[in-house]
Computed example of a mutant assay.
Amino acid sequence: MLAITQNRYGDPGVLALREVDVPVPADDEVLVEVRAAGVDRGVWHLMTGLPYPVRLAGYGVRAPKNPVIGMDVAGVVSSVGAGVSRFKPGDEVYGLGIGTFAEYARVLEKKLAPKPANLTFEQAAAVPVSSLTALQAVRDQAKVKRGDRVLILGASGGVGSYAVQVAATFGADVTGVCSKSKGDLVSALGAHQVLDYSSDDFTQYGPFDVILDINGHSSLGRLREALTPKGTLVIVGGETGGRWLGGMDRLLRAMVLTGFVGQRLRPFISSENHVDLQAMTELIETGKVVPAVDRVFPLAEAAAAIQYLIDGHVRGKVVIAVA
């Protein structure tokens, strides 16, 4: 099969389209014939091996253990492992796989769900990683409820575009922060107010009951200044560019500080599971959430798709069409 592979860490130039063996699913895995794969910051982290703790987490210290990259996937079940009971060949599915920038990919059964009936494969591939992060941040960490004033920093990106919609669905008054050129998208997704990150000081528009910091560029001090005394800050990752901590230092400070202040400062890492994917399916099939797909690249142009993402051009999500 054809796949996008890398034999070392680095920029998109390390990626190449190669012929590799079709993977064999384990007993608890499904082999999916990939129709489309989503692109997100996690793919960049695995491609570059940055920050360095990514390599220590089992992905390979000197070089990637799995040369095929990609996580988001939408496609058709080709075969199933002996222990799989929820799927059969021919089922249309989506979820979080292993090496999805390829014609076939392995996916754990527990990370796979039936594809929303009203989405194309390209739209469905834009959902799993980003939407699960948004749903769990809004629903579980921030516990957003009707009437809450919610500020979302990084509202036009993959996670942000879903967070705006989920928070609005829960009845929140949403303020989104993004670049001026993407303000129309954030407004269309359901934000009641849109701020330009380059000219508007979000601290002057608070206080907010909930802040979701997705882009990772604001200090804890500024974020707390815009928060109510009992408000909740959810830090979704961080992109400060450091090779060792890469934004995790801010998460660690928040964890220490939250025990000494009235505000809830919540570092957050999403959980990859089919139960929450099915919850997103319900929101999507009822029209409450719509994937914001910016561009679709062919498999051979995966490197260009990742470069487009890290250059900051993306409005919502970028997708790779495989079939």
Rank of each mutant, 00 (worst) to 15 (best):
R243G: 15
E225G: 03
K230D: 12
I269W: 09
N215P: 10
M255S: 15
T258H: 08
L220F: 02
G237N: 05
R253P: 03
R222F: 06
T258K: 11
D249W: 10
G221C: 00
L212C: 12
R253C: 04
I214P: 12
V256R: 14
S218M: 08
L251I: 12
I211L: 11
M248V: 15
P207G: 05
V210K: 09
H217W: 10
D213Y: 02
S271Y: 13
L265Q: 05
G259H: 14
N215F: 09
D249I: 08
R264T: 06
F260M: 11
R243H: 13
E225H: 04
G231Q: 04
S218V: 05
S218I: 07
S270P: 14
S219T: 10
V236H: 11
L233I: 01
F268E: 07
M255L: 14
A226Q: 01
I235C: 11
G206D: 00
P229G: 01
A254Q: 01
I269M: 11
Q263I: 09
M255N: 13
T258C: 12
P207W: 03
V234L: 05
R224K: 09
R243W: 09
A254G: 11
L257W: 13
I211N: 06
T232C: 01
S270Y: 11
L212A: 10
G231T: 06
V210S: 07
R250P: 02
P267W: 09
G206S: 06
L220T: 00
V261C: 04
F208K: 01
P207F: 03
R243D: 12
G221Y: 00
W244F: 15
L245D: 10
R250C: 07
S219C: 05
R264A: 08
P229W: 01
S219W: 01
F268C: 13
F208P: 02
V234T: 07
P267N: 08
L245F: 15
I235T: 08
M248G: 12
S219H: 03
R266M: 13
S271G: 10
L257I: 11
R266D: 06
L265D: 03
M248L: 15
L212T: 12
E239S: 15
L252M: 14
G246A: 11
V261P: 00
S218K: 10
S219K: 05
L223F: 00
V210Q: 02
